[in-house]
Design a protein around this nucleic acid. Structure first.
Length: 363
DNA sequence: AAGGCGTGGGG
DNA sequence: TCCCCAAGCCT
């Protein structure tokens, strides 16, 4: 009693939704078959990432690592390189960790129960439900942002979808609504509807296949939903970065720590600076010596550049410099040519620096 | 529970 | 330009 689905025509809704999906679904590379490994890769890539962005990455990734076993055995550096530019890099490191576990613990077969699959690194409630329903036909909810938006409108649910707890409420509703005959189509249809019709800004209610089931549409309130409180501004960080060249024409690059922002990706030497416009050169000089025992002559200021992340913004002052001592290499510190650089995974922020470094090198 | 964690596209 | 967003997960 007092359930969100009271007086709701579940079977009619399922039929209208799934029929529409079967007629109108997009032809996407991960829909070619139901290989659990491919479904898994696609779901990880699609987290917080648009379909159009994912498509070329998915095709390239699957050609490089065609099977679960291939990914399990691959070098992490190569895997990160394949992910370069996609963002949220811990996704792919977690994926490889989990794939190795499946190879070892489950004989290479992706587990098909909620209990087992949810233990895998990087497989949360959404991804678990998506793989189980799409690859194995298990009637588990797969509640993502689309599903919360669509359902908040259809069932007129006004809980804040930004709160962690709210997702479980939607999962409860989906357990009542989901088609037991075709949970794969049902879950994908909910997301497809969210992507194509029931969009955030201006939902196309007049052509929506389920508008006669939609309480928000009935009351003309679809634009008020879902409820989501807005987030605060991003923090700004002032940085100084350095294009450091050695006599043999090679450049210094550094591998970032294995945890935190841009973990295990490569970068140019850089330091946060406190007083902007004052001591960047001094900061860089001290940093190089203290961190790696490298002495250098910092030269011209090349340019300023900025890079925006989801939660912070880097304002980077870029300098060039000459190394004045012989230095060795470590696992996380290398001197490389531009050509050699191409094998290393860089975040987009440092791809911008590489581009500028090449321009400077021509002069 | 709330904040860390990327990037590029669109209104 | 600015802000929100796009198939979330981890701590």
């Amino acid at each position: 009693m007092n359930s969100y689905t009271d007086d709701f025509s579940i079977l009619d809704f399922q039929r209208d939704l799934v029929d529409w999906y079967k007629m109108n679904q997009r032809d996407l590379p991960w829909r070619a078959d139901q290989d659990p490994y491919k479904v898994w890769v696609s779901e990880i890539m699609l987290q917080q990432t648009r379909v159009d962005t994912v498509i070329p990455y998915f095709n390239r990734f699957l050609s490089l690592f065609p099977t679960l076993g291939a990914l399990a055995e691959a070098d992490e550096e190569k895997v990160l390189k394949a992910w370069e530019g996609l963002g949220y890099y811990s996704r792919v490191r977690n994926l490889q960790t989990a794939v190795k576990e499946v190879a070892e613990q489950y004989g290479g077969k992706v587990p098909d129960t909620p209990e087992e699959i949810s233990k895998l690194k990087g497989v949360g409630p959404y991804t678990a439900g998506a793989i189980l329903s799409i690859a194995y036909g298990v009637p588990e909810p797969a509640v993502d942002g689309n599903v919360m938006r669509v359902l908040s409108r259809i069932l007129l649910i006004e809980e804040d979808i930004g709160k962690a707890k709210t997702r479980t409420l939607f999962e409860k509703a989906v357990r009542e609504l989901i088609s037991k005959e075709d949970p794969s189509s049902f879950n994908q249809a909910m997301m497809e509807l969210g992507a194509l019709i029931c969009t955030p800004k201006s939902p196309a209610c007049l052509i929506c296949p389920v508008h006669e089931h939609c309480r928000a549409f009935d009351q003309g309130r679809q634009r008020e939903l879902p409820v989501k409180e807005k987030k605060t501004k991003v923090r700004h960080v002032d940085m100084a970065a350095l294009i450091l060249r050695r006599a043999d024409g090679k450049y210094l690059i550094h591998k970032r720590p294995k945890e935190g922002l841009l973990a295990n990706l490569w970068e140019f030497p850089n330091v946060p600076v406190r007083k902007r416009g004052q001591s960047e050169i001094e900061d860089l000089t001290v940093f190089l010596d203290a961190e790696w025992g490298i002495t250098a002559e910092i030269g011209d200021h090349i340019s300023n550049l900025e890079h925006v992340f989801s939660h912070l913004k880097w304002d980077i002052q870029l300098f060039e410099g000459q190394c004045t001592t012989e230095t060795g290499e470590k696992d996380d510190l290398k001197w490389v040519t531009f050509e050699e650089m191409e094998a290393f995974p860089f975040p987009v922020s440092h791809q911008k620096i590489i581009k500028l470094a090449k321009e400077v090198a021509v002069l």
